[in-house]
């Protein structure tokens, strides 16, 4: 077709486009996550690709771990059934796009709460499920006692993490020179460390403990005492659906509250029937309308606890076996403990 015609056509189209542009744009009503999850019948939860204690499929292919239990607890709160979860394993780099684009409903993937993630990435953090910090792991044979001795070392790190940024900050302020080896997948980055490509591997101390625990000879590796950052880990959702964010937040608080009141997977049914404490009665839906306020069933906490047990049980099941102590993750009633739930009222 002659080009002359085409240019005319373009001109006309631009005009048409201009007209359409000035027409009012219809505002989009965001559908509620709660309805979406209910009608879909499951929760889509973004987790680790495989980190012992946090999220890892067992030999039967069943996902297990601390973060996984949070997915199950949220599913139990909303759907009354902790098995109704679809797990989407995500690398550190792919996790945020997956949440932004709606590929997952909630991200429970040892993710650090930072200001920029909370604001410019468009997320809302629902709480701090694990207080962590960044550390270094080295081979015991190097005989190091402090991270400051790492000057000139090659350090393995995963990209897209707070880890890599903390590392450069720390090196800068301590005048330490290092060579980074930056690999996306956890198996490969750990492989590079164990094969001696790197002198040290750095990430959240919990991640180091998890990695060390699954090495053939854990005693060959030491986690140096230096902790160079604060890593408050917690679940996060897309900004904009406050109700769903509330549910995730209060699921975490329910786990904490339950531990505080001594409610466990084993005794929750009995407590629901006969525990006389008013706050327990409100929490378990015997009294008041706390469940409805969240848009959930009155007995949502009972479902949650029967699925995962309380925070202490979740911790003991997943993290105690790999050698992680409660430390700052003890309840506030214990000296040094930071885990605290607002009142169920």
């Amino acid at each position: 077709m002659p080009l002359r015609h085409l240019s005319k056509a373009v001109g006309a189209a631009v005009l048409l486009g201009g007209l359409a542009l000035s027409a009012p744009v219809q505002a989009q009503t965001p559908t509620s996550m709660l309805d979406t999850i209910r009608s879909r019948g499951n929760l889509i939860c973004g987790v680790n690709t495989g980190l012992a204690g946090f999220a890892q499929p067992d030999s039967q292919g069943v996902w297990r771990g601390f973060d996984v239990d949070y997915c199950r607890a949220i599913a139990a709160a909303i759907l009354g059934d902790g098995t109704k979860v679809r797990y989407v394993p995500l690398t550190a780099q792919s996790r945020f796009t997956a949440l932004q684009s709606g590929e997952v409903d909630v991200l429970v993937r040892n993710t650090t709460w930072t200001l920029s993630r909370d604001t410019s990435l468009g997320f809302d953090f629902a709480g701090i499920t694990f207080y962590d910090g960044q550390g270094f792991m080295v081979k015991a044979s190097l005989g190091l006692t402090s991270a400051r001795e790492l000057n000139g070392a090659t350090i393995c790190v995963q990209p897209g993490t707070t880890t890599e940024q903390n590392l450069t900050d720390w090196a800068r302020s301590n005048r330490i020179e290092f060579r980074p080896v930056v690999i996306e997948r956890i198996e490969e980055v750990v492989g590079a460390y164990t094969s001696n490509r790197c002198d040290a591997y750095t990430t959240d101390v919990s991640g180091l403990a998890a990695t060390r625990a699954v090495q053939p000879r854990p005693a060959d590796h030491v986690i140096l005492p230096d902790v160079i950052s604060k890593e408050p880990l917690g679940p996060l959702v897309r900004h904009g659906d406050q109700r769903f964010a509330d549910i995730v937040r209060w699921t975490h608080f329910a786990l904490l509250g339950a531990e505080e009141f001594g409610l466990t997977a084993a005794n929750v049914d009995q407590a629901a029937a006969s525990d006389p404490r008013p706050e327990v009665q409100r929490m378990l839906g015997k009294n008041g309308e706390l469940g409805q306020m969240l848009g959930l069933q009155p007995n949502w906490v009972v479902s949650v606890l029967k699925t995962t047990g309380n925070y202490g049980e979740v911790f003991a099941r997943n993290l105690t076996p790999i050698g992680i102590q409660r430390g700052p993750n003890a309840l506030w009633t214990t000296p040094g403990g930071l885990q605290y739930s607002p009142p169920f009222r």
Partner: peptide, 11 residues
């Protein structure tokens, strides 16, 4: 670029 978009959220 992947790391950049991860840190800035600007996919």
């Amino acid at each position: 670029a992947n790391t950049t978009l991860n840190q800035t959220g600007q996919a």
